[in-house]
């Protein structure tokens, strides 16, 4: 597995904290005449915990960060409503403590982790990743976490483990909108990766963003981030990780197999049936004018995982 050249930039180098926390003004990538310069208003509603970052990551991009309140006020998190402005409103009282993440299945040492254990399992790194949604928009987010492999190595997958299934929290008391009849997808939300994808160092188990613990609408307290795949592969608010022998069912694939494949690698050459994937909108730009890169720009690191595969068929 090749490790990329260090970009050497951390979040602190890109955007000083007061700039995005107070009256956030920044320039979006857009044609000069329409450069969308913005001043964003809403302060984060939830008191977040500051996280101690042990290291910056060589995996980080040095592209300009997306303002924190764009990333935290435009979410697909159907458990808290199907519109992208709903999770920021509806998730504010989501209780994430105490929390248990159970890791089970084809492993030598199945185990339940408390949030505290998760936070201390490996040194927390900051990783600035591009995040590309299947809907055609993208953001650049300074996540905090560590490679998922650190957790998987602890439980020791057996030889039978070929895939990893991820399950999100689901509780109608806390998430009254999370009904399959209305949202149109099944709950609990489940996603999956091949074991070698899950073990890839880029696959991130994230507990925070922008220097703090994850806001509830972005998947608190612990979520998956797979930067070379469309965003919906990154299951939020994880309660269960199961190692299994065959390809697990996944939520969007069950809802519409024709539109959302199991792999869902970012690929500008393979259109979604309802729109082209060649371009993306780097939020909060007005324009869909940013060229989408193969594997979201992580081809050097991950293309090897798919050598010999027809990516048009395995979309």
């Amino acid at each position: 597995m090749s490790i990329p050249k260090p970009a050497g930039l951390g979040q602190a180098d890109v955007t000083p904290r007061p700039v995005y926390l107070n009256r956030r003004k920044f320039l979006a990538a857009a044609p000069a005449a329409f450069a969308a310069t913005r001043a964003l208003l809403a302060p984060p509603a939830l008191a977040a915990t500051r996280l101690n970052i042990a290291a910056k990551s060589p995996f980080s991009t040095n592209e300009p960060l997306t303002a924190a309140d764009v990333a935290t006020h435009y979410n697909n998190f159907y458990e808290f409503g199907t519109s992208k402005n709903e999770p920021a409103r509806n998730a504010q009282n989501f209780r994430t403590n105490p929390w248990t993440l159970s890791v089970e299945g084809e492993v030598a040492k199945p185990r339940k982790f408390s949030l505290d254990e998760i936070l201390k399992l490996a040194p927390l790194e900051e990783r600035i990743y591009r995040h590309r949604c299947v809907e055609g928009w993208s953001i650049v987010v300074p996540w905090i976490g560590y490679s998922l492999s650190a957790l998987l190595n602890l439980v020791q997958p057996t030889a039978k483990a070929k895939y990893v299934a991820f399950e999100s929290y689901w509780d109608l008391k806390q998430m009254p909108l999370a009904r399959p009849e209305t949202a149109g997808i099944a709950f609990p939300y489940v996603e999956g990766l091949r074991l070698d994808e899950a073990m890839h160092p880029l696959a991130l188990l994230s507990v925070g963003m922008y220097g703090e613990s994850l806001p509830p609408q972005d998947g608190a307290p612990v979520r998956l981030v797979v930067p070379w795949k469309y965003g919906f592969k990154g299951a939020k608010s994880l309660v269960k990780i199961r190692l299994v022998g065959s390809q697990p069912p996944t939520t969007w694939n069950l809802a519409n197999a024709h539109e959302y494949g199991f792999y869902s690698n970012v690929n500008p050459q393979v259109d979604h049936p309802r729109w082209s994937q060649a371009k993306e909108q780097r939020l909060p730009s007005f324009f869909k004018n940013h060229a989408t890169q193969m594997f979201n720009g992580y081809a050097d690191q991950v293309a090897g995982l798919y050598s010999g595969m027809d990516l048009r068929k395995n979309y």
Binding site: A36, R38, A39, L40, L41, A42, D69, V70, H73, Y74, K84, W137, Q281, L283, P284, S285, F286, F287, K288
Partner: peptide, 10 residues
Amino acid sequence: VPALPPNPLD
């Protein structure tokens, strides 16, 4: 304008 839209196109 209580809040600017994170995605103006949308």
